[in-house]
C-alpha cells in the first residue's frame, strides 16, 4: 500500500495553535465591537456561526475534490483525506445548526423552522453526510469503500451551492449573506464585527487544515494497523498449516 511521504511534522501543531490564536483574536474584535443598532450583543455569535458554516462548506466541497482525485489516481491517501474532510464537515455543520438555533430564538423568535429552505437543506446535508459515513462503515473492502464514498461525496457536494443559494432562490426566514464577493457588497457596517468576521474565516480555515492533517494521520495509522493485523493472521494461518 502506498502513502504519501510523511510531510513536515512540525506543521500540524503550528496550524493547531495558530487557529486557536486567530479565532481568539476574532472573538476579541467581535466582543469589543459596538453593539449592533438593532440586535445589540446578539451579533457576538456571528463569527462562530459563519465560521462553522464556512467550514462545513469547505469540508464538503473538498470531500468531493479529494474523492475525485482518488478516482483518478487510485491513491488511498486521497480516500483518507476525503473521509477526514467529511467527518470535519459533519462536526461543523452540527455547530452551525446549533449556533444558528441559539441565535434564531432571540432574533427570529424561534429556534427552528422547518419551512425555511436554508435551515431545511442544512439538516438534509447533515443526514446525507452521516449516511455517507455509515455506508463507509458497512463496506469492508478498502478499494470498494473508497470508490463508493468518492462517488457519494461528489454527488452530495451539490448540496453546498444549493444551500448557499437557497436564501436567494426562495423566500426564507434566513437572511442573505452579509458579505458577497460576487455582488461586491458588504452589509457589515461595524468595524469590529467586520474584522472579527474576516479574521474568524481565516481562523476556522486554519482549524480545518489542522484537523484534516490530524485526522488524515490517524487514518493512515489505522490503515497500517489493519494491514499488520492481516499480516499476522496470514502468518498464523500459514504456521498452523
Amino acid at each position: 500500500m502506498n502513502s504519501k511521504p510523511s510531510q513536515a511534522a512540525w506543521l500540524t501543531p503550528v496550524l493547531g495553535y495558530s487557529s486557536v490564536i486567530v479565532i481568539a483574536v476574532a472573538l476579541i474584535f467581535t466582543f469589543t465591537a459596538q453593539p449592533d443598532v438593532l440586535q445589540g450583543y446578539l451579533t457576538r455569535i456571528l463569527p462562530i456561526h459563519v465560521g462553522a458554516s464556512w467550514l462545513a462548506y469547505l469540508s464538503f466541497g473538498l470531500t468531493a475534490v479529494f474523492g475525485l482525485t482518488y478516482l483518478i489516481t487510485r491513491n488511498p491517501h486521497w480516500d483518507r483525506l476525503s473521509l477526514s474532510s467529511t467527518e470535519i464537515g459533519v462536526v461543523f455543520i452540527v455547530l452551525s445548526l446549533f449556533s444558528g438555533a441559539l441565535w434564531g430564538r432571540p432574533a427570529w423568535g424561534a429556534y427552528w423552522q422547518w419551512g425555511d429552505a436554508r435551515l431545511t437543506t442544512t439538516a438534509l446535508m447533515l443526514l446525507v453526510y452521516v449516511g455517507m459515513l455509515m455506508v463507509r462503515g458497512m463496506i469492508e473492502d478498502g478499494g470498494r469503500r473508497a470508490r463508493v464514498s468518492a462517488v457519494i461525496g461528489i454527488v452530495a457536494s451539490v448540496g453546498v451551492p444549493i444551500n448557499y443559494m437557497s436564501v436567494y432562490w426562495w423566500n426564507t426566514l434566513h437572511q442573505t449573506p452579509s458579505l458577497s464577493i460576487a455582488e461586491r457588497r458588504s452589509a457589515l457596517q461595524n468595524d469590529g464585527i467586520l474584522i472579527g468576521f474576516l479574521v474568524a474565516l481565516l481562523g476556522f480555515t486554519l482549524l480545518y487544515l489542522y484537523l484534516l492533517r490530524l485526522r488524515g494521520q490517524l487514518a493512515l495509522q489505522q490503515t497500517r494497523l489493519e494491514e499488520r493485523e492481516l499480516d499476522l493472521e496470514l502468518k498464523g494461518a500459514i504456521a498452523n498449516d
Binding site: A33, Q34, P35, D36, V37, L38, Q39, T43, L46, A107, W108, G109, A110, Q113, L173, Q175, T176, P177, S178, A187, L188, Q189, N190, D191, G192, I193
Partner: peptide
C-alpha cells in the same frame, strides 16, 4: 409571529 432581520449589521 416571527421577526425577519436583514443581513445588515450597523454600529451606532
Amino acid at each position: 409571529l416571527l421577526v425577519r432581520h436583514s443581513e445588515e449589521y450597523k454600529a451606532p
